Simulated assay, not measured.
Amino acid sequence: MKMVKVGIVGLGRLGRQHAENLAFRIPNCELSAVCSVIPEEVEQAQKEWGIKYAYTSYDEMLNNKELDAIFIASPSGFHCEQIEKALNAGFHVFSEKPLGLYMEEALRVQEVVNKHKDQVFMLGFMRRYDKSYAYAKKKIEEGKIGEPYLIRCYGLDPAKAINGFMQFAKNNYSGGLFLDMAIHDLDLARWFLNVEAKQVWAIGGAYGYPEIAELNDAETGTALVKFEQNKMGVFVAGRNCAHGYHIETEIIGTKGTLRVGTIPEKNMVTVFDESGAVKECSDGFLERFEQAYLSEVEEFISCVREKRQPNVTVEDGVLSTALGYACKESFETGELITVQSPYKVPSSN
């Protein structure tokens, strides 16, 4: 296969970035179709980028047999159904995280993926493709910090993005703080520690924006996770970070510590003015992980062309969803949740 022809569904903030990458920055790839339920988004993308096909119906796009792959960047609640339909229609599939908002649907998707072994399926855990996180993983595998036993993660969205989030959440697209935001950190914890979660206790609240509590969600939340082999995880996620987008990870081992993003710098520039010496922060996830979003899609296209499966699997999606769902349940009930099995819905302890 010389050129992989892709159709993308979802042209919101992240979807549009993915679409631009597919159209202009990915070797051996052609963005042949765009799809959105918002006609203006479809018209704009087709006109600006010269896309051959444009749809407001996902099912109609799946009837286009010129396409080789479907890229899913729609809101989280649509992922499972769209993954199933695309695989059953014979396409290779890339889906943004999370795999699903509920364990039952995540497990159903896993069954469908496993029935289509000849088709590539990849989930968008892009931090694994960030150069700094990949380097940290390499150091762990080399034994640089001994045996890792604790991971601490901060995932904080900038306060200026709160209005956009509120619109997203009111449409029931979010899935809650832990499944929407912390899912990346939960996946990294499994990746770095190389174990699965056993118990979860999560707390949080709506401190600067009480209206978030009306959505049965937290503005800022914290989860304490006990993993296999008595390893530990501390996860802080929030939507009201005054200084910008702050993503920080610390992995502590028996012989040392690794830290990624301790100071969330925009770049290497220091601004000296009446405010003093200022290191600006990233504006958001699209800026901070620009390279990672590009690298993960390059890997997907390479997998399709080389007829191989990526390292990020549907099982990673199921296991991370199980942990995220357990965090959500603990926050909502105030109880300690035992993750009894990767393939069973967590229950109260």
Rank of each mutant, 00 (worst) to 15 (best):
E30H: 06
N240L: 10
G244M: 08
Y173N: 14
Q340C: 09
N311K: 15
I252S: 10
E335F: 02
G12P: 08
K279C: 04
G175C: 09
Y343W: 04
M122S: 15
A277H: 14
S348L: 09
T56E: 07
C153K: 10
V271R: 11
F300A: 04
G221H: 00
F24G: 08
D68E: 09
S57N: 13
N28H: 12
M122L: 14
W49Y: 07
F125R: 05
V34T: 01
L336W: 09
H92C: 01
K160D: 13
G238R: 00
P346K: 08
D130G: 03
R239I: 08
Y102N: 15
L193I: 06
L150T: 01
S341Y: 12
I247W: 10
C241R: 12
K170R: 14
V37L: 14
D180P: 05
A136F: 01
I263C: 13
V339M: 03
F289L: 08
E299C: 05
E248P: 01
V234E: 11
H79S: 10
G90P: 00
I70V: 15
G146I: 13
L215H: 09
V236L: 14
K52Y: 10
F227R: 10
L179K: 09
G100M: 01
L99G: 01
G7H: 03
A161I: 00
I212E: 04
E211M: 08
E274T: 02
Q44Y: 14
Y149T: 07
Y135Q: 13
V42W: 01
S330Y: 04
T333Y: 05
F227V: 04
L336F: 07
G221T: 02
G284W: 04
L87S: 02
A223W: 06
F285D: 00
N349H: 06
N114D: 13
Q199F: 02
D157M: 14
N64R: 02
P264D: 00
D130S: 06
T313F: 03
P39K: 15
A73T: 11
M3Y: 08
S36L: 12
Y102M: 10
A54G: 15
Q110P: 01
